[in-house]
Design a protein around this nucleic acid. Sequence first.
DNA 1: GCAACTGTATTACTTGACAAATACACCTCG
DNA 2: CGAGGTGTATTTGTCAAGTAATACAGTTGC
Lengths: 124, 124
Amino acid sequence: MILVVDTHSGIPVYRQLVDQIRFGVASGLLTAGEEIPSTRALSASLGVNPMTISKAFSLLEEDGVLERRPGRPHVVRARPDRATRLEQLEQALRPVATKVRQLDLETDAAITVFRRLLENRKKR
Amino acid sequence: MILVVDTHSGIPVYRQLVDQIRFGVASGLLTAGEEIPSTRALSASLGVNPMTISKAFSLLEEDGVLERRPGRPHVVRARPDRATRLEQLEQALRPVATKVRQLDLETDAAITVFRRLLENRKKR
DNA sequence: GCAACTGTATTACTTGACAAATACACCTCG
DNA sequence: CGAGGTGTATTTGTCAAGTAATACAGTTGC
């Protein structure tokens, strides 16, 4: 998988890496057990400090996306089970549910907006 | 309306104020045209600098929640029209739609989670 | 007009976030 | 065992975010 970063985008480098690796795993470009390039290899190819790469990896490890092995490169972890993924989605949706209430919008309207976004993305 | 802040909560003071005022407006405790206590009054009662209060008010003003009047306290603005509120919800839902894809979850599962959250909150 | 209020522009200070430099511990293979 | 790789703990430096001090401009009521 090719990882790229734009240090002028205003988005922290580590966040760009997290996003790309997450996307790689979700899209099937990266499969369980597959090795991620080392912090030093990416540091050389992307021109950023290894600790910056390491930060991205640490976050992905905390989230269960990557697995760390002492002295060896990180590997992609088996995808969390469905229940865990649903729980993660719920965490992401909680503040939005609060927002729906703040905006005084009805449940069905909110559902419609969400569905439209989800289906638009599927079509792309 | 009573506003409170906890300076040790780790949540920035201005953000606590923004959240409380938003909630006050959404819940009907604060109505359109109603005056918000002045930056100096809140500064005295909450023990924070007026500029911190002002920052909260500025954000709420940008978001169309409050209206500023030179030499006079802020007032609650008439609620944005429905289309604007729906647009705000869509902005909040966009990253979540991305997350659904990353988690490789189906639209219907995501909708179910969202609906459950919205209806749980309604019951409280 | 002035006192007493209003909000905030500007500047300064403190704390948090981000990124990098350095050195340590671990692993694999010849 | 040692060379060549692995990740990261720790510290440092820079920049961004959060907060405060000060003074200015605007409003209202007496």
